[in-house]
Simulated assay, not measured.
Amino acid sequence: MTKIKISGGVWSATPTPLTADGRVDVPSVHRLVEHHVTMGVTGLMLAGTCGEGPWLRDAERETVVRTAAAAARGRLRIAVQVTENSATRTLDNVDKAVTWGAEIAVVAQPYFFLNGTVDRQLTYYRDIARRSALPVGFYDRGKASPYVMPESHLLELLTEPNIAMVKDSSLMPAHRDTFLAARKLRPELVLLDGDEFECVSYLQAGYDGLLLGGGIFNAGLAHRIIRAVRAGDATEAARLQARMNDLMLRVYGGPKIECWMTGLKELLVQMKLFSTSTNLLGYPLTDTCRQQITDAVSGADGLGYKADLFEPAQLTGGV
């Protein structure tokens, strides 16, 4: 097992740039890496849900991981989603990720998992943790997955020494409490909040940082939220969270998130990071969403979101 230092801060579950024919856009991968470095991001999670990993061809997943790892040159940690429907298939993905340059293997609830008893879930994750050549990140999607591990077994799982970090997107307070209890037993376990619409309470509870699907554009604001929480300024943290939420809703298409992936990639095209908004998930792009993105990028909204999108973390109160 490879041992690396993993820290908190702001992580990005980055989208994958694609060409018009659905291949990985290699020049855009280089641009997204440089942008993340500029914005002070700690690490990238590649080929996750936001990265369309479950829908990408294997060759495209390899291309995006190899390209990002080479471009990062050790300036960012590189994690990759490796989830499959059995431990052996997942471990095959881990072995591939090693050769591609990944440093952390992220495992979520499997997509299809027959006979998904709690004991079998525990065995699945434990086998991966004990046999993985990379440190493991546990990605908890909570009730967004059909297989939710109860707190008793979750705490038992997190005693595994090769589970190095958690992406908590469960939206379940009981799971948050369990992760914090596990960290008391294993102080080296890094806890990252994956709910970008509610960062403050997780940071106040003691989480080490944030792993955000919008990290490629909201990292500056996310750094400022972390700084405010660590300074004990709850009022400023709440103000910044509300500001970040408003920006995300403008990009994602409003409270129903109707433009999610297409809006996100359209923003990145307008930021000159991606070449196309091509995605595999078929979200629409409304005229309202497109205009709000244009106004934010250009500064025409008068709200100052242009600075939030582009200014380096050290200029926006980053940590």
Score class of each variant (00 low, 15 high):
I4H: 09
V10W: 07
A13H: 00
P17Q: 02
G22C: 07
G22L: 07
D25P: 12
S28T: 05
H30L: 14
H30G: 10
H30I: 05
V37M: 07
V37N: 06
A59L: 08
R66F: 07
R66H: 05
A69N: 03
A70S: 15
L76I: 11
I78H: 08
V80L: 01
N85D: 15
R89H: 14
T90M: 02
A97F: 04
I104Y: 01
A105K: 01
V107N: 01
N115E: 14
G116H: 08
Y124V: 12
R126N: 02
R130H: 14
R130F: 02
R131A: 15
R131D: 12
S132A: 13
L134Q: 07
R141L: 14
G142H: 05
P150T: 09
H153T: 08
M172F: 00
R176V: 12
F179L: 13
F179K: 04
K184A: 09
L185D: 12
P187Q: 09
L192D: 00
D193K: 05
E198H: 11
E198W: 05
C199R: 10
C199G: 03
L203E: 07
A205I: 03
G209P: 07
I216Q: 12
G220E: 01
G220W: 02
H223D: 09
R227L: 11
R239I: 05
N245T: 15
L247T: 06
L247C: 13
V251E: 10
Y252L: 15
G254P: 03
P255D: 06
I257M: 09
E258A: 15
L264F: 00
E266L: 02
E266M: 03
T278N: 00
D287Q: 13
T288Y: 00
T294E: 04
D301I: 04
L303C: 10
A307N: 03
T316K: 11
G317Y: 00
